[in-house]
């Protein structure tokens, strides 16, 4: 569909992903030949460290992190996407038949261009860029993800919000045929649709993007195809997936997790090692692929870029 303009950086350069898959093939073949598949042991030279490094993605842009990129396989197999199920492997398993195309996005509220768009029209002519961002989940694990996408700001400018618009609200698709959890009528895990929101100054910050791909490929369904918000200084749950609705408003939206448990999740959800989740500490995180937990950085390491947005705001109360 849309979006996949040829990138200036060939995907082969972003990541030696082929190598990554090949080594898995190689190990599998080797183990099978040696009859070791079941035991899964002793293939000298095939230990993780000798093949590791799935992504030595090359940081090009000024917002890119130079940290080691999380393997494609991990990014696409370990997800929180409750519409597909609450298990980490549910989204990959249950999203195989999800249809990110055809798609439509309804834009409404305080703007000059309210309408229902198909994504091709909505983002026609907007160039996608690669952004290698840290992603910190509120559950205290993290990844480094090579997104492709475009600044949310560009889209907002196109929709011409009125000066009265102070917030932007997003909604995920509601479709019980495609989302098994939305068919559940007892003990629903969340109230659908999933809702997220940003202050306008947050939404127009250059770090905030709408992602349309990862690893130089179209966005996989389990990662939120076709359009997914990425706000790298906030906890991952702010990154709403499969967006079908954009609304400009003067009232602070009530996002889904805040509505679900307001003492645990707030509107801002800025990554903050000093403000714990009531049930666990946010001081450290497990980077996927690492053994020891590492310290969590203020605003997920983007303090230089975004701290000024929150000058004077009590971050302990506005978690």
């Amino acid at each position: 569909m849309l979006i996949q303009r040829a990138s200036d950086i060939p995907s082969s350069e972003i990541t030696p992903e082929d190598l990554y898959h090949n080594r898995r093939e190689f190990i599998k073949t080797a183990s099978t030949i040696l009859g070791l598949a079941a035991v899964g042991t002793i293939v000298p030279g095939c230990a993780p460290e000798s093949v590791g490094a799935a992504g030595e993605a090359q940081a090009k842009g000024k917002y890119d992190t130079t940290e080691k990129v999380t393997p494609f396989e991990d990014i696409t197999s370990y997800n929180n996407y409750y519409e597909f199920g609450t298990g980490k492997d549910d989204p990959a398993r249950n999203s195989k038949n999800f249809k990110p195309k055809p798609w439509s996005v309804k834009v409404e509220g305080m703007c000059k261009k309210p309408a229902t768009y198909n994504p091709e029209d909505l983002i026609k002519g907007i160039a996608t860029e690669d952004r290698i961002y840290r992603m910190r989940c509120v559950e205290a694990w993290s990844m480094v993800i090579p997104w492709a996408g475009f600044p949310l700001r560009t889209l907002i400018e196109r929709l011409e919000p009125l000066p009265s618009a102070k917030f932007i609200e997003f909604k995920t698709l509601v479709d019980g045929n495609q989302y098994p959890e939305q068919r559940r009528s007892f003990f629903k895990v969340l109230d659908w649709p999933y809702v997220e929101g940003l202050r306008m100054d947050e939404a127009t910050h250059p770090l905030a993007i709408i992602a349309t791909g990862i690893y130089g490929k179209p966005l996989p369904n389990q990662n939120g195809a076709p359009l997914r918000l990425v706000v790298p200084w906030k906890y991952g749950f702010k990154g709403i997936k499969a967006i079908v609705n954009i609304r400009f408003t003067d009232k602070q939206p009530v996002n889904t997790w805040q509505q679900q448990a307001s003492q645990e999740y707030g509107f801002y959800a800025n990554v903050n090692p000093n403000v714990d989740h009531p049930r666990w500490s946010q001081a450290r995180e497990r980077r996927i692929g690492e053994f020891l937990k590492r310290p969590t950085l203020m605003f997920n390491g983007y303090a230089d870029q975004v701290a000024e947005l929150y000058a004077g705001l009590d971050l302990r109360r506005n978690y």
Partner: peptide, 21 residues
Amino acid sequence: SRAGWLTFQGLPGGLSANPLD
């Protein structure tokens, strides 16, 4: 134990991307 070992070896049939959790 077996699943953990497979994961450590980078083989299929192991745990998720976050095996310790």
